[in-house]
Design a protein around this nucleic acid. Structure first.
Lengths: 201, 201
DNA sequence: TGTACATCAGTGAACGCGCGTTCACTGATGTAC
DNA sequence: TGTACATCAGTGAACGCGCGTTCACTGATGTAC
């Protein structure tokens, strides 16, 4: 082997990372293979020695972005607050996430575009969402499993829709809107937990 | 005037309607001017006597789609239920809406793509959302104005995100997920209204 | 230790294609006489 | 009432461009001797 075995793997990861960032910032259709490769410090010709098609890259970038976004949301939580469902949602419905789609949730940035994608992309998308819903469910185990599942669904929907809407607004309206969404969830969740989920203002 | 004055106006409306449908079904980037014109029964050459650019069409189609979707959601409400915020949200978070993006909410179908659009598109999008939030606020006037505004924000977020997520899932999971979202909102809203907002199962 | 070599990651020109847009034109229409 | 005409909605060929993809190649690398 003339090259160290980790070398190609590292390059591939650089491409996926660059794609995950560019797709979330500009949309998948508006980012070409050449642009991704340039962001990774390469030329476009080499792309097909790493991936079979742009579509393969999309699926892999989606996986990568999902993991990155989860990390981003976890880091964004106030240290003073315990790791609850509401804390997670509040970190998601935040101004840093609003202004940095390229590091944020791929569903908020690309959801409908991904839903219209290939079978391969849709599969990745579907299992990513299922996993995310399970994790959210684990953060809030009050009541029956079915109740926890419903809560996770409603909160996740509010997170994604809140971010999609906030990014669709004038920037001056967006921060207030996000704050309204957080407050709404705070009250909705407080109902089931006797107020335990309420965040400090 | 060699042609009846309503003729060109009617043709223009046919183009806008075809675009509004095609964009929501396939995404804006995947629908060409030629395809829209063909759907309207015309050839692509005539497009620029109606619009300055594809971008102008996008903004107009967005307006058209928003109005159409509101009508769609209003018609979808069960006749037995009074026209409340929850009833509106339940009609939105429905299987017909899930399976017919081409007649549904343009934000659920195209939100992020529109947010990345031109200034013109963003302006239309922003004012459409503000108007929608106001209408939702009018459906539920309990508590202070500020509380009603928060409720409208949270519910709208849950509607949009719920639909985006449901469409991103396997079809077999989507209906249950939508039902979970409706239930979540039902409980969240019941809290403020002493149960008045609860829908029959 | 030094050198010739095989490997293969990455290069860059080229391809076919579909897009948004332009433009010279055609032909259906209501009007003037 | 019938006909010649001006108008302009709609046609379809053509354009430049950027895309995803292919492919013959280059040159940096670890290995064999």
């Amino acid at each position: 082997m003339p090259w160290p075995k980790e070398h190609k793997q590292a390059t591939r990861k650089r491409i996926v990372s660059a794609a995950a960032k560019a797709f979330r910032r500009q949309g998948i259709a508006d980012v070409g293979v050449a642009e991704v490769m340039q962001s990774a410090g390469l030329t476009h010709g080499g792309f097909y020695s790493h991936f079979d098609s742009k579509d393969d890259l999309i699926a892999e970038a989606l996986d990568y972005a999902g993991a990155e976004a989860f990390e981003f949301a976890t880091k964004g939580q106030s240290a003073s607050v315990e790791n609850t469902l509401l804390a997670h949602a509040s970190a998601y419905l935040s101004v840093p996430h609003l202004t940095h789609p390229e590091r944020g949730c791929p569903i908020a940035a690309l959801g409908p575009e991904l839903s219209r994608g290939s079978q391969n992309v849709r599969r990745t998308l579907g299992s990513g969402i299922r996993e995310r819903l399970e994790r959210l469910g684990e953060l809030d185990k009050h009541g029956t499993d079915r109740e926890a599942k419903r809560r996770a669904a409603g909160v996740f929907a509010c997170m994604v829709g809140g971010m999609v809407l906030a990014r669709a607004m004038k920037e001056s309206d967006a921060a207030t809107f996000l704050s309204d969404c957080r407050e709404f969830l705070s009250k909705a969740l407080a109902r089931d937990n006797g107020g335990k989920e309420t965040l400090p203002a």
